[in-house]
Design a protein around this nucleic acid. Structure first.
Lengths: 217, 217
DNA sequence: AATAAATTACCGACCGGTCAGTAATTTATT
DNA sequence: AATAAATTACTGACCGGTCGGTAATTTATT
């Protein structure tokens, strides 16, 4: 929005350094809204405050722009996310909460939250990108959670569940809320506050729905 | 496959009654794979064993075909799914399991499993369809689960959670596995057996990850 | 029963519009 | 003035949608 207005006021600026990043941000936005095939390069260009031709000064093709947008958006978040829950001094349940909340705040609430939806949508058309995403993002994060659960089990804090399966279970509510917000959020005023939802999810995941008769937590 | 071969052997069959259903099935398949914009009508026609022109004998437009494919696929499943868990004589946890397993078997394992992925992908381009899907499928099912949880709470079988939030939490693993299978299943041999995953999810949701010191379930 | 006439499901070439990508041109910067 | 950045005008491929024609089927006629 701001870029577009600037562009209207000051057309034909020369800002070689800033263009790629602005184009990538705009691309992520539009791809997230419309999917790959339905987005027009002209719209991306317009949102970045340039004309279509300019896009080709910085990117080979639409597909290259697409891949670059996803990779540059996600990669810096990966290490940060992986490190989030690596403080084994605290109780396992607390580390789990830290991880989920941290992931939500770093991915779900930001521009990056668009990426899962894009990849689900385009997995059929871009299997290589989907594979890359799954291996370097989802799998990696799930392995981290699985390790964390493994520690919890070894310490006797958790039931002896299958760590990898349990990691996926823990992941599910986060994945679901990110997708739901982006896909159905517009016309869904009754969508729960994500933090409340995640808190409830964490509570259920840690203590379960079933009330014990004897002792209460 | 069989249709295509038959078509190659016996071109130009006249089967007015069978065409619409075959076209809808083929459409659902291709739309699920490629998304709306990227699917070519010619491919749908080919998979249904007819030519492109024939599609327009039975459907107004690509968009009409898209909507029809989704609606006719989902609608018959809705009532069945809603009735699944309406036997309040059994324990709440058992009803919950019934619902999740039933949903998985009726939606997840069939052609219908493609619909959630399509709608996530196209929610930006077809807000009306997405809204319809959310209201008549997701919301409806979640309300059913919420009612079920409410009963569990009133009976003292469940903790006093927020039923609507908890319903979404229960829904998440099912939603996630359906999406994951369709989006990343092809190149993911290590994806868990869905039934094992759902069993683990149910176990965690009902009893929680945290082990109680005093009594063991 | 055989054949001709009428009907209609189906085909596929074609048209028009759209859009990714490119080449020619203009404008900013040094 | 030289060059690099950005725009504009253009091209060609592609695809949704149409339509004249064709072949399968039904009905009428003998």
């Amino acid at each position: 929005m701001a870029e577009v207005m600037d562009a209207a006021i000051k057309p034909r600026q020369r800002r070689k350094e800033a263009r790629p990043a602005e184009l990538l941000a705009a691309a992520l936005e539009v791809f997230a809204e419309k999917g790959f095939a339905a987005t027009r390069l002209e719209e991306i260009a317009a949102r970045a405050g340039v004309s279509k031709g300019t896009v080709y000064l910085y990117f080979e093709s639409k597909e290259a722009l697409f891949k670059a947008a996803i990779e540059t958006a996600m990669t810096p978040a990966v290490e940060a996310v992986e490190a989030i829950a690596n403080d084994p001094t605290r109780p396992a349940a607390e580390m789990l909460r830290c991880f989920v909340v941290g992931w939500w705040e770093r991915i779900g609430t930001t521009q990056l939250g668009a990426v899962p939806k894009i990849l689900v949508a385009e997995s059929g058309n871009f299997p290589e990108v989907a594979r890359w995403f799954h291996e370097t993002i989802i799998s990696r994060a799930q392995r981290a959670v699985a390790r964390l659960i493994q520690i919890g089990i070894e310490r006797g804090e958790f039931h002896p569940v299958d760590p990898m399966l349990a990691a996926r279970v823990v992941f599910s509510p986060m994945f679901a809320i990110i997708i739901w917000r982006r896909a159905f959020g517009h016309f869904m005023p009754d969508l729960p506050e994500p933090r409340r939802f995640l808190d409830e999810a964490l509570a259920i995941l840690t203590y379960g729905l079933v009330a014990r008769k004897k002792d209460e937590s």
